[in-house]
Design a protein around this nucleic acid. Structure first.
Lengths: 196, 196
DNA sequence: ACGACAAGTAAGCAACCGCTTACTACTCGC
DNA sequence: GCGAGTAGTAAGCGGTTGCTTACTTGTCGT
């Protein structure tokens, strides 16, 4: 496999598709949906930009594919009781390489796009908070789950998108420590607000 | 003051400026910075769009002016100890009329714009978390303040931007109740994570 | 009353956007 | 080996963007 010189790109549709998906995932996470242009995606993937539309139809569909491609792994891995910690750690992980850890940042940066907001609400938020709610038998279970999820997303936003210090510089372990001790207080039956 | 008919707009620079600021505040909160065009702002303000640039120079500067114009009121009102509740209530308030309650939503919808993120981090987040941190003498005071602020912003995001149920439909009073009982546990000295 | 300057307007520019089209070149079944 | 079909390419289309320019109209000091 001599991939040294490319007077013309070698014919390899699956590699082209993968390169586009990867480049799109990175750019959406770095700049958000609006600020990412199809020309930039094609350039980073070193692919002619017309191929983006051949393989994915539109920029929106490419975005949706990136999200669904990257979000499934998180939900289907590990025991249910560990889900809160897994969500939180995914949100806290620096975007080192392409993959699942990019997805939430991409979404948080793309909130102005209605379709991105819908995806975050329905696909991610829906299934996450549903499973979070199933971990408790307290009243207002779903509302409490939403509050927990809002906390995780908010921490991820301030850390990875805003990069606000000292939260951005704090080690993930410390943050997980604080939050994972506070979360049970919200989810358990005798949580702060069970009177009235 | 007969503002009945306008065969041509009456000459009133301050009214024009105010109308632009108001329209921009509404639209930025509704759609975010990217998805709002200067033509839309001018149209809603019923003002020629060239005047937008005469008065504010650029779309970016208009955005900055909207934010600084609307964010000061919140910080300078009421006692310091009530600040967490005030921030939270501001985040939770529906965007009924133009004014300070729009600002955070506008910012949360505009995270893809780097300048918006900078404003949210430095001007709002900076002063908020600084004052939150001054409410406690616990170790990691600033980090804890950031975690509280992240929670408030996350709740505001899921509620006003994502509109995820049941959080979007819950009454502000209930949400304030849950959060204002949990926050002291995070800020007080003997909070969850004071060993190690 | 009138000149000067500011407020308001219409039109358009250059750049960029997502997306399409018309085309070339490679690969593979036969 | 040769037509068919697909991967890859270059160019550009129509529309929108933020912003500017050349101009008209109203206001006010004198």
């Amino acid at each position: 496999m001599c991939e040294d010189r490319q007077p013309r790109r070698k014919r390899d549709p699956t590699a082209t598709r993968t390169a586009l998906l990867r480049a799109a995932g990175e750019l959406f996470a770095e700049r958000g949906f609006d600020q990412t242009t199809v020309r930039e995606v094609a350039a980073r993937a070193e692919v002619n930009q017309a191929l983006l539309f051949r393989y994915f139809g539109s920029k929106q569909e490419l975005f949706a594919e990136v999200l669904s491609h990257n979000s499934e792994a998180l939900l289907r891995s590990g025991p249910a009781a560990e889900l809160p910690r897994r969500i939180l750690e995914s949100v806290l992980s620096e975007h080192t390489r392409s993959g699942a850890e990019h997805t939430l940042v991409a979404l948080l940066r793309s909130l102005s796009d209605e379709r991105a907001a819908t995806l975050l609400r329905d696909e991610l938020g829906g299934s996450y908070s549903e499973r979070l709610a199933s971990l408790t038998d307290a009243p207002d279970a779903e509302l409490r789950a939403d509050l927990v999820l809002a906390w995780f997303f908010g921490v991820g936003m301030m850390r990875s998108v805003l990069r606000k210090s000292p939260l951005a510089e704090a080690s993930p372990e410390v943050i997980v420590d604080y939050l994972m001790r506070a979360v049970p207080l919200l989810l358990e039956r005798n949580a702060p607000a069970d009177d009235e």
